[in-house]
């Protein structure tokens, strides 16, 4: 899509994404890490060629219950990695541990080689990590463009004393506004810039949340169920946006229930069950993994799990069974 997106050394700059791209879905996205996983074994805890994030012996206990117990995980830089698993597998808890929203009972997490599990969550944004939430956190009483501007870094006006004197922050504010409008344009949301975020539909809020995350110019984007409750039309453009993030050289980790989505966009899939990672591999490897099949069947006795000839799970509706339960507890958009 753009020249510097091909660059292996990621150059920060949202504008690189380009305004006026129109519907993101129409674009074939270049995959800068094509082939990187070719030599990586399909086994749990395997080393990646260039890991951005590492989790070592991370566990989290609530009283007597062990919610997460991950021995070792590496995430490849520049890849789209999916984190899947049945309900209650500890995906979101693990996500919270990785993003500093919860502190592991044992173990450590490192980002670009720097230990981050004791770093408060708000400092991670400046280290290049940003996340979204399963229950969308659009800031309802702020307009969409205000939501965007919140993501911007280096705004001197966010200091209480400098805020008192407009000239100290007006310049940066204008630049941020400009940047926000460009991102909105890329997300096809320019027309709703002045609306209160609370008035948007569930899917649109997801978009706002993701766009806001992009405003922090992240190296690593962590999306917690980005497609939950989003209508099919919007799903396509969201998928396009995620791929676009990859083509800009950013790393994406996302939690997802929908196998179609996982198959469509992920380079690597990590499967969790009962707090542990039970399988890793490219999407096509997951369906044939006995541990994964057992984990899903184990938690959904009453549902069928079928595989087509590619080894992908299917049902009559063409959607993986394990997405069924997940959808009921997240908000549903129009």
């Amino acid at each position: 899509m753009t020249d510097n997106s091909n660059d292996a050394d990621f150059v920060p700059g949202i504008t690189a994404g380009g305004g006026g791209a129109g519907a993101a879905t129409d674009i074939e996205h270049h995959n800068p890490i094509e082939g990187v996983f070719d030599d990586v074994a399909w086994e749990v805890g395997v080393a990646k060629p260039d890991p951005i994030l590492k989790a070592t012996k991370v566990s989290r206990k609530f009283g007597g219950l062990t919610a997460v117990d991950v021995d070792y995980l590496e995430v490849q830089r520049g890849s789209i990695t999916a984190l899947i698993g049945p309900n209650g597998a500890g995906k979101t808890t693990f996500f919270n541990l990785l993003t500093g929203f919860d502190e592991p009972t044992t173990g450590s997490v490192s980002l670009n080689g720097e230990t981050i599990d004791k770093v408060p969550s708000h400092k991670l944004a400046s280290k290049g990590m940003v996340r979204t939430f399963q229950l969308t956190k659009a800031l309802s009483k702020l307009t969409v463009v205000e939501n965007m501007k919140l993501g911007a870094k280096d705004q001197p006006g966010e200091s209480m004393f400098k805020a008192l004197f407009s000239p100290l922050w007006k310049g940066r504010e204008d630049a941020v506004e400009q940047q926000a409008r460009e991102v909105l344009d890329r997300f096809n949301m320019t027309h709703m810039a002045e609306e209160f975020a609370g008035t948007l539909s569930g899917g649109q809020r997801k978009l706002v949340e993701m766009a806001r995350a992009i405003m922090t110019d992240p190296e690593l984007v962590m999306l917690d169920e980005p497609m939950a409750g989003v209508n099919p039309a919007l799903t396509q453009s969201l998928l396009g946006l995620v791929k676009q993030l990859r083509s800009e050289g950013r790393t994406v980790i996302f939690v997802e229930h929908d196998m179609d989505v996982v198959r469509d966009i992920s380079d690597w899939v990590v499967v969790m069950a009962e707090g542990k990672i039970i399988a890793e591999g490219p999407p096509e490897s997951i369906g044939e993994n006995q541990a994964v099949v057992d984990a899903y069947l184990g938690s959904h006795h009453d549902e069928d799990l079928e595989f087509d000839e590619d080894g992908n799970t299917t049902t009559e509706t063409g959607e993986a069974t394990f997405s069924v339960n997940a959808k009921t507890d997240s908000e549903v958009s129009e």
Partner: peptide, 8 residues
């Protein structure tokens, strides 16, 4: 006597 809350 309260239980610590589980997040997520």
């Amino acid at each position: 006597l309260g239980q610590p809350e589980r997040i997520g």
